[in-house]
Design a protein around this nucleic acid. Structure first.
Lengths: 91, 91
DNA sequence: TTGACAGGCAAGTAATAACTTGCCTATGTT
DNA sequence: AACATAGGCAAGTTATTACTTGCCTGTCAA
């Protein structure tokens, strides 16, 4: 999951999905391009695979469309490990 | 900063510093080795450099020792970006 | 049923990151 | 002064990651 966050294009993808869930690969490509992260469809597809493997994005197929949704819950592991974990004051 | 978190050895270093601040390079090497992250001193030193560049670790020199301290505040950027940011319910 | 659109697969290349190696400097001890 | 300890520098190698290229499959509309 940490490796998934290491790439700026993938972080931009999370930003786009935070803005609007349920986007397709082509929509995300277009929006990345509009935000200065020009990448080919294949590159974006591979980035999405990494995000799915990390549990940060989930997908649902519908006809010929595949919609992508953001799932931020794995990020809580970061908070619990170093921000609110043992040895730290709970908020 | 995200790239700094991408490596397991660096995450282990953060864990060690969370457990006890103010450790030297050699202490950290010994403790990593004890936790199954055997790395040479040079490798650990380079990892610490990355963590310092990311703002996650600060250092202070004292004689021939260089102490390392954890600084988790950059991690709040993750929380604010995807967990409590705009478009998300503030807790 | 043909064609356009959405997406997938896989091999190859390019770029980056992690690690090693060998030697160097500074501080403190005996 | 001599030596051990703590750390630094930099070039080279290996390993990993990101990206490209070319072609393939599935869905839907005319």
């Amino acid at each position: 999951m940490f490796k998934a966050l290491a790439d700026p294009t993938r972080r931009a993808l999370l930003d786009e999905l935070l803005d609007r869930d349920g986007q397709t690969l082509f929509e995300l490509c277009a929006r990345l391009a509009g935000h200065g992260f020009g990448s080919t469809r294949q590159a974006v597809s591979q980035h999405l695979d990494v995000l799915v493997d990390a549990g940060l994005v989930s997908t649902r197929r519908q006809g010929r469309y595949k919609f992508h949704d953001l799932n931020t819950s794995p990020l809580n592991a970061i908070v619990e490990r170093w921000l609110t974990g043992p040895g730290k004051d709970q908020q």
